[in-house]
């Protein structure tokens, strides 16, 4: 499978950008020239220059430095939120798929109910109660994002558990735990990982949207979304405050989507002839 992924240019391209982003996030203090929170009204809304490669915002903060630091938050929320969703989804989904019957109907009914809510409404409602901050946003995005993965792994397991190798394993005396962890999850995890990668992209978009609405990462902490929110106020004056954070989101999400698409192709090679 690795070979197929590497043969897939778009996946390699996506993975490359993601790697670059991770490096940027890790070494943010080394890359950023300015303190992202340093306010200097005198240099407010300066266009891109050598001094400030992406210009400054309405409080005179260096946009480049703020965007570098914002990448940390985007990636952190993307990975941790979806990691949480992955864990919950895989556990629920494999229990439901393997045991079937009552277990299955209770878990999947719960997932169905959760899926009825427009996700953004649900997230907004919880934030209204617990208040907006990075940690809450992370947990809420995770806990509202597991249902798709649970469905995927359940569907995989439903088909895998009738495979002959599972029957053979049972004939050899294997326990449920052994069958689930050794045969079913390793073979069924592929589509879930694809969905995880797309999910990270989605979580980053959601965080950006929340922050843009003022309900996510709170200023002065920089996030691509809240930089854009501030940019909206200077619409028509400082184009750079709008263009660059948007591009950052676009490129990041694009990278994850490319990787996800590539992974999916590698998992389902087109049937020849």
């Amino acid at each position: 499978m690795m070979k197929q992924i590497f043969r897939n240019n778009q996946a390699v391209f996506g993975a490359g950008i993601i790697l670059l982003l991770i490096l940027v996030a890790v070494f943010a203090p080394k890359i950023a020239k300015y303190d992202p929170a340093f306010i200097n009204i005198q240099s407010a809304l300066l266009g891109p220059s050598l001094e400030h490669p992406l210009g400054t915002d309405s409080l005179g903060r260096d946009l480049f430095s703020r965007m570098i630091y914002a990448s940390r938050i985007a990636l952190l929320i993307g990975f941790i939120a979806m990691g949480l969703a992955l864990g919950v989804g895989v556990i629920f989904g494999s229990l439901a798929g393997y045991f079937g019957g009552k277990t299955d109907s209770i878990i999947m009914r719960f997932a169905d109910i959760m899926l009825c809510f427009p996700r953004f409404f649900l997230i907004l409602a919880v934030i209204a109660v617990v208040g907006p901050n990075i940690f809450n946003v992370m947990v809420i995005i995770g806990l509202t994002g597991w249902m798709g993965m649970a469905r995927l792994i359940r569907a995989e397991i439903l088909s895998l558990k009738t495979r002959d190798y599972v029957s053979a394993s049972r004939a050899l005396g294997a326990s449920h735990f052994f069958i689930i962890t050794k045969h079913l999850i390793p073979n069924g995890i592929g589509p879930v990982l694809v969905s995880f990668v797309f999910g990270v992209a989605g979580a980053i978009l959601t965080e950006a949207a929340l922050s843009f609405l003022g309900l996510g990462v709170q200023p002065p902490n920089p996030s691509w979304g809240n930089i854009l929110m501030e940019g909206k106020a200077v619409l028509g004056v400082g184009w750079w405050v709008i263009i660059f954070p948007g591009l950052a989101i676009l490129i990041t999400v694009l990278a994850f989507n490319l990787l996800g698409e590539g992974l999916r192709d590698a998992l389902n090679p087109r049937v020849e002839r």
Binding site: R163, D164, Y165, S167, A168, A171, L172, K182, H183, P186, N187
Partner: peptide, 14 residues
Amino acid sequence: QIVFQDPYSSLDPR
């Protein structure tokens, strides 16, 4: 013990 028809699906591919 049992041996199945389809040796593709009777062996865990991973």
